[in-house]
């Protein structure tokens, strides 16, 4: 009974898992870009850029993600900005994770020894060249491991966009339960799928981290 329930619902659940992974991957890529440039804005000498970046970070770290999703999906239509559920979810997830990632990037940039900038500038590089060629490549290597928490949180947070009718893993589970009345089994299967995805991803990150730092560490 339970076993056949699982085998019958599994295709739909795995299909929805693809949506979960898709949401996570697209959002993480956008969040990395947002986070990277926000970090650059925060360390720049331009007061306006710095200010915009700080306000953005403060808002998205200082409010619940669920509220951010509601504002984007239910709130914006009131001023005639209508965004469909999936893009709304991606926007909310990317902006939210971007705010956290920018802090990791910034910390990584600041943690590069100041002798590195001096050595690059002593050769005659511009600040921009030194940043691109010397500081940022090292910052990215430093930042990757410190960011794994944010990536994993992002995967888990994709479940929140189920509230705006995106059929990802959690939403699909609820739909199946509405028909089968088997919440325990179905939610446990969903939990197991999340666990596999997140653990697999963690292993991948560990491997990447070892690869990228093998030359640098003593």
């Amino acid at each position: 009974m339970t076993f056949s329930l699982i085998t019958e619902s599994l295709p739909a659940l795995l299909n929805a898992t693809l949506m979960t992974i898709l949401l996570a991957v697209i959002s993480v890529v956008i969040a990395l870009i947002i986070g990277f440039f926000t970090a650059l804005a925060r360390i720049s000498k331009n007061k306006l850029l710095k200010g915009i970046a700080s306000v953005y970070i403060s808002i998205f770290r200082g409010t619940p993600l669920l509220v951010q999703i509601f504002v984007i999906y239910y709130g914006l239509p009131q001023i005639n900005i209508e965004i469909s559920p999936i893009p709304s979810g991606i926007i909310a997830l990317s902006l939210n994770a971007g705010a956290y990632l920018s802090e990791s990037f910034r910390a990584a940039i600041l943690s590069v020894d100041k002798g590195q900038l001096e050595a690059a500038e002593s050769l005659g590089m511009t600040y921009g060249q030194a940043l691109r060629r010397i500081i940022l490549p090292q910052s990215i290597r430093i930042a990757i491991p410190t960011m794994s928490n944010t990536y994993i949180t992002l995967i888990k947070d994709t479940s929140l966009v189920s509230v705006i009718t995106v059929t990802e893993l959690l939403q699909m589970s609820s739909l199946i339960i509405a028909k089968t009345f088997e919440p325990l089994t179905i939610y446990l299967v969903a939990a197991a799928i999340y666990w596999v995805v997140i653990t697999g991803f963690t292993l991948l990150l560990d491997w990447l981290e070892k690869r990228s730092s093998r030359h640098i560490m003593q």
């Binding site: 590195q116 001096e118 490549p137």
Partner: peptide, 14 residues
């Protein structure tokens, strides 16, 4: 046009 050599070397580790 001016080479600078630091006490702590400051080589690019990557």
């Amino acid at each position: 046009n001016t080479g600078f050599v630091f006490q702590q070397f400051n080589l690019f580790p990557h």
